[in-house]
Amino acid sequence: MPRFATVLFLAGFAFLLFSLTLTLGFGEPPMRAGQGVLDQAVAGTGAANAVSAVLLGFRGLDTLGELSILFAAATAGGLVLGHRRPGGDGPPAGAILQAGTRLLFPLMLVVGFYIVLHGHLTPGGGFQGGVILAAAFFLPVLAGTGAGPDHALLRVVEGLAGTVFILIGLAALWTGGVFLEPLLVDRGALHELFSAGTLPLLYLAVGLKVGAELAGLLAHMARAGGGEA
């Protein structure tokens, strides 16, 4: 019987979605807020990448909330999985895997930090780069050549990176602005690495935080998967 109600709900939902196809307009969005954001992005944040300007400037609070969600997920994941001994090791990694891991690790670090630090100029930013950083640190675990990142260190990094993000936001408040207002925007020319004021710093905090959270979550899961599961 609940099945029937579910199917009924699904049918209604699908009908709703497909009837929207006929009523929504495509390709010509109203851009009521979007156009203003595009017009002010450079003056307001100094970032050439308008998406980054939205993420860290116009909607910085969303980004803070999103970092908090990752933190909450990592904390809850740790709470669920607890501290457990690493399970039985898999078969030892072969020479190719070991060499490949060692070769890739520095490359991934460089690419990750490059993407984090150029987020205000080119596509990319703290999230994308942070994921690559997390993958770099997680690679040895996947290849079976290392124990993965140190948990205590990850905690310090994620705690401090999140705090730095909020402190940069509060710094604006203390200097007479509003919470999360971009600072020092007029220093540096457009399209240069050291431009857009505090945005690259914020992105660095975001990148480190995302990297640490994801690496922590993955390490927890790898440890849990080590046993019989």
Partner: peptide, 29 residues
Amino acid sequence: VDPIPQALVLTAIVIGVGVQALALTLVIR
């Protein structure tokens, strides 16, 4: 193009990743 939805999607993707990871830890347990 409108930059706002692109930023929103970036946020939504990261939120989704967090939720999915937590769901998987629960599945493991």
